[in-house]
Computed example of a mutant assay.
Amino acid sequence: MQTRLSALAALAAITVPVFPAQSHHSNSAYQVDEIITLTGTVMEWRWSNPHTWLILAVEDENGNEREWAVEGRAPGILGRAGWHPTILQPGETVTVHASPSKDGSAVGIISRVTKADGVILGNRPDFFGAE
């Protein structure tokens, strides 16, 4: 009996396909019940999976520049909402509405971005362009 179980286990190990691990990314690091407003200069716009990132230079209340990293949704979702890899350019001024991190660091998750020309970039296709 033991030999039969060992043989079945070995066969299963050989025949079971191996898939890459998929992870789920939650918003648990952010205070999603709070929205802050950041106005700053785009330093970098990363259009990458699993999440996009917007790096901003934001002047704080003391006049000091602080770098903020705000996480966006996946490129596939944002693409359907009207975003694209070059929609944000270094040097342009934007206003970001975001939920801040729970630990108080200069990190957040994007709710929406308003460009200097008034274009609003939302997270859902039915939100794009709405105020």
Rank of each mutant, 00 (worst) to 15 (best):
N62M: 13
T93Y: 05
T15E: 13
E92D: 09
V18K: 08
S99E: 02
W68M: 03
Q2K: 13
A13R: 07
D33I: 03
R4N: 12
L38Q: 00
L11R: 10
R4H: 12
Q22R: 15
W47T: 04
A57T: 05
L78K: 00
Q89F: 06
N123L: 14
Y30Q: 02
A81W: 00
T93F: 06
A57H: 03
V96M: 01
I55M: 12
E34D: 11
V107F: 13
L56K: 01
S48L: 12
V32I: 14
A21M: 13
R112P: 03
E71I: 06
F127P: 04
N64T: 07
R124F: 09
R124Q: 12
T114E: 09
T93A: 06
W53A: 08
S26P: 10
S105W: 11
A74G: 07
A106H: 07
G79E: 00
H25L: 10
I110A: 03
G104E: 06
N123W: 08
S48E: 10
G63N: 04
I35P: 05
K102D: 09
P50T: 05
K115M: 10
S6F: 13
F19A: 14
A7N: 15
T52Q: 01
I110Q: 03
E92H: 08
G40K: 01
E61A: 08
A69Q: 11
A13K: 09
E71D: 10
N64L: 05
V94P: 01
A29D: 11
G104A: 07
E59D: 15
Y30K: 02
P20F: 02
N62T: 15
T41E: 04
W83S: 06
A21P: 06
I14R: 09
A29V: 07
L54W: 02
I87H: 03
N123E: 14
Q31V: 11
G72Q: 00
H25R: 10
G82T: 06
S105M: 13
A106Y: 03
A10L: 14
L8H: 14
S23Q: 14
I120W: 02
A81H: 00
A7H: 15
A10D: 15
S99V: 00
P20M: 03
A13S: 13
P125C: 07
S111W: 11
I55H: 12
M1W: 14
S99K: 01
E92G: 10
A10Y: 11
R66V: 14
